[in-house]
């Protein structure tokens, strides 16, 4: 085997060629996949929005900062025949059992919750992952409630929400995420619609 000598110039040249070839290949693959990846992410977002608001034909997105600080939330205003039918809020919490949980919360224009779906979580399989709609109907209890009159806390904390058996921390975190969405929603959207009189339904 005519192996190359490990001289300085040989080593530098080899590493340079290997990394250059790797960079070129990765750049090519990145360019080829950039569009399908963007499409897949967009499809996922659209699907999540369509689950938490009534039927719509037009979307408008805007970002608002939550009142207690932290990352801004993405509000997706859903219109049907130019009438506001729902608002899907992309919300988050850092209080999950295993870190950040993101969820999509849908509101009616009057502030009631239409539905909630999780987007990403790393909760314990079999326990905390009951926030996933495909695993359990636990999150159905948020349907139709008005956070102004319902306390978004688990019963253990004197709230109105049933916790998940053996995963109270996850349930608390989910309530926290929904509360954050509602607070921001109340600050930026509800206060305006109330000034202008009855929201158009």
């Amino acid at each position: 085997m005519a192996k190359k000598e490990s001289t300085f110039i040989n080593m530098v040249l080899t590493l340079f060629l290997v990394t250059a070839a790797a960079s070129f290949t990765l750049a090519t693959v990145y360019n080829l996949t950039a569009e399908p990846i963007a499409q897949a992410r967009e499809a996922k977002r659209q699907f999540a929005i369509s689950q938490v608001v009534p039927e719509f034909d037009r979307l408008e997105s805007k970002n608002f900062l939550p009142p207690d600080g932290g990352d801004s939330l993405e509000f997706n205003f859903a219109y049907m025949n130019n009438e506001l039918v729902g608002i899907a809020v992309n919300t988050w919490t850092n209080r999950g059992y295993s870190g950040r949980i993101t969820a999509m919360v849908g509101f009616y224009p009057d502030g009631r919750i239409f539905d909630v779906v999780h987007l990403q979580h790393k909760e314990t399989p079999g326990l905390g992952d009951k926030i996933d709609k495909s695993k359990s109907d636990w999150s159905d209890q948020f349907k139709g409630i008005d956070p102004e009159t319902t306390t978004l806390k688990v019963r253990k904390d004197n709230g109105d929400i049933d916790a998940i058996t053996a995963a109270t921390i996850t349930a608390r975190a989910y309530c926290d995420a929904i509360q954050r969405a509602y607070d921001t929603f109340a600050d930026h959207v509800l206060s305006q619609t109330k000034q202008e009189g009855e929201p158009e339904l």
């Binding site: 085997m1 005519a2 192996k3 190359k4 000598e5 490990s6 001289t7 040989n10 080593m11 080899t14 590493l15 290997v18 990394t19 790797a22 290949t25 990765l26 693959v29 990145y30 996949t33 990846i37 897949a40």
Partner: peptide, 28 residues
């Protein structure tokens, strides 16, 4: 045969990491 012995491990890691990134992008 064209990789000098002393830098073979870094070269292998770059090659492996490239393939992993290709898999990741394609899968996503």
């Amino acid at each position: 045969n064209v990789i000098p012995n002393k830098v073979r491990i870094p070269s292998f890691i770059v090659i492996i990491a490239s393939f992993v990134t290709i898999v990741q992008l394609t899968m996503e």
